[in-house]
């Protein structure tokens, strides 16, 4: 399993909006090649934290390093071209074909050679049929569109993927499928991935490491197994108890009376 993704280090990272501390002095190290889930309720600061890594949001204070480089030493658009970014609303460009949507990162980078081959390869990677290339985004289903979103983010071969509720708007079957397939891709390509979700079940299933955020701070930092075994704080327990109770209930239903 090749590891090409970088490690990430956050030092006392804060982002304030007026008196609100969306992210409150977070320090964190993420090892290269990890799939980290950031879990929390709405307003816990998880999206803000994620978007500071590719400078869609500028920190009030603190530093972020990707590998050895501080992100504020890089031009924002250069930085972002090195990082894959996938978000809930997908944001495919409605006036461009699927193939141009996928290749847009290459277009920005000025790579002219081999775009079609790369698009074909990426369509395979996200398990979309090749004839999708010439279609327009509005001819695709939500799940297909998000597969294109993932392919577009991967086009420039980034080592780091930032995903903000990527599968949140999809139906459960599609969502489950994509979650599985992404995990496999992450492992195969040796990526470092940070995925924001409010769904603890998804986080437990997908991630190597789960960070629970509340009030702008990280309240728990554990592996899925550790979370399930308890003793990781009440914030985490509150979130973990839901899938646990649901699972128990389902198992109970399945047993013969």
């Amino acid at each position: 399993m090749p590891v090409s993704g970088p490690s990430i280090s956050l030092q006392q990272l804060s982002r304030h909006y007026g008196t609100v501390r969306a992210v409150d002095s977070v320090s964190l190290d993420i090892a290269a090649g990890t799939l980290v889930a950031l879990v929390g309720l709405s307003g816990s600061g998880k999206s803000t934290l994620l978007k500071m890594i590719n400078r869609l949001v500028e920190p009030t204070s603190g530093t972020i390093r990707i590998g050895d480089e501080a992100v504020d030493s890089i031009d924002p658009h250069i930085l972002r071209r090195r990082i894959g970014y996938v978000f809930q609303n997908i944001g495919l460009f409605p006036h461009m074909s699927i193939s141009r949507n996928i290749a847009i990162g290459l277009e920005l980078a000025g790579e002219k050679e081999g775009r079609d081959e790369r698009v074909a390869e990426l369509l395979d990677l996200v398990e979309l049929p090749q004839d999708m290339a010439s279609r327009m985004p509005d001819q695709l289903s939500g799940g297909q569109q998000q597969r294109v979103g993932v392919a577009r983010a991967l086009a420039t071969r980034p080592g780091l993927m930032l995903m903000d509720e990527p599968f949140g708007a999809l139906d459960p079957v599609t969502r489950d499928n994509l979650t599985d397939q992404y995990k496999a891709l992450h492992d195969r390509l040796g990526l470092t991935t940070i995925i924001v979700t409010h769904d603890m079940a998804e986080a437990l299933y997908l991630a190597d490491r789960v960070l629970v955020m509340e009030g702008g701070q990280i309240k728990a930092d554990a592996t899925p197994a550790e979370l399930l075994s308890g003793n990781v704080g009440e914030e985490a327990e509150a979130l973990v108890s839901i899938p646990r109770a649901q699972a128990a209930h389902l198992i109970g239903l399945g047993k013969p009376a």
């Binding site: 869609l56 924002p76 658009h77 090195r82 970014y85 978000f87 609303n89 997908i90 944001g91 920005l108």
Partner: peptide, 27 residues
């Protein structure tokens, strides 16, 4: 212009001019 298209343009690393030329103006 759809905010999602703008966010995608920013996330992909478009400069302000590229965003205008490739996304905002055509839409």
């Amino acid at each position: 212009v759809d905010p999602a298209a703008r966010e995608a343009a920013d996330g992909l690393g478009m400069t302000a001019w590229q965003k205008l030329r490739l996304v905002e103006a055509p839409l």
